[in-house]
Design a protein around this nucleic acid. Sequence first.
DNA 1: CTCCAGGCGCCTT
DNA 2: AAGGCGCATGGA
Length: 296
Amino acid sequence: MRKSDRTARFQVESYDLEATLNSGQAFRWEKFETNWEGIVKRRWVKLSRDPGAIVAETADSVPDWDWLKDYLQVELPIENVIGSFPDDEALRTAVSAFPGLRLLRQDPWECLASFILSSNKRIVQIRQIIRALCRRFGEGIPSGAGSPGAYTFPSAARLAETSEGELRECKMGFRARYLREAACLVATSKIDLDSLRRLTCEEARCQLMTIPGIGCKIADCVLLFGLGFNEAFPIDVWIMKGLRELYFKNRPVPMKELREFATGHFGEFAGYAQQYLFHYLRTRTADTASSTNSAR
DNA sequence: CTCCAGGCGCCTT
DNA sequence: AAGGCGCATGGA
C-alpha cells in the first residue's frame, strides 16, 4: 500500500486544530505529542499541522477525502462567519482568544448519543464514558502503528439491542435508559436524523425534544454540531453564567430571556459565537482557578 | 466528609 | 408557567 493513499494535506488558513478538537464539541480526540488521533466515519485518523495546512493520515488507503474535509469544515470561509458577528466587547475578546476555532460537522447519531451522556457530567468524565462505550460496543478498526486499538462509535442498532444494565457498566448511570431509548427510536426510524436537516431549525428541535433525555440544550447541540444548523445556540451552565456576566452585568436574568437575547443578538452564525464564548469562558480562568485551588 | 458536573424529567406551587 | 429536587458516578 502506498503511503500517498493514506495521507492528505488540506490547505487552511486560521484553523486552530487544538482548540477545535478540544473545545467540548467532540469527545473522542486524543493528543499524542503534536498529533491528534480520533475516529471519523469508521476510520482512524491522525491529524497534525503544517504551515498553512492540516495533514491527515489514516490506517487504510483512502480513495476520496471528502468525508474528512466535510467533518473538519476546511472549506468554510471562517472570515465570513466572524464578519457576521455583532461588534461587541465580549465576543471580540472570545474570538481573539482562539481566532482559529472552528465547528466540526459530526455524525448526528454519535453527536446525539454523546450529548445524552453529557448531562450533569464533566467533560473529562463524558470522554471516559464514551471511551468505555466504544470499546465495549463499537467495532474494532485498524489504527496506526503504535496507537492503542481503535473502535467505531456503536450504531443505534447495536445499542438498541443492549440491556440497560450492560450500558450502566460503562458508568453512565441514569443516562443508560435515555441512551437505550434514543437508540431504539433511531434504529427503528421513528426518528430519522438525516431527514431533520430538511426541516427548519425550530421544527427539528421539536422533533429532537420528543426523545427522552433530550431537552433544549442537548437538542441545540445536536442541531449545531451534528445537523449543521449554524443558528442553534446551546445554553449550558457556562454560557448561561457567561451571558449574564458579559451582557447583563451579572443580573439574574431568567433563562427564557437569555434565549431570546441570544436568538436576536448573535445572528445567522450564533452557534459559532456560542463556541467561541464557551471555549473562552472555560479556558480563561483555568490558571487562576488551579492556583487558588492548589493554594488550599 | 461535602460539593458539583456542556441537564433533564417530574413534582410542587 | 415557573421553581425545586432527585438522579449515578467520580473527582476535587
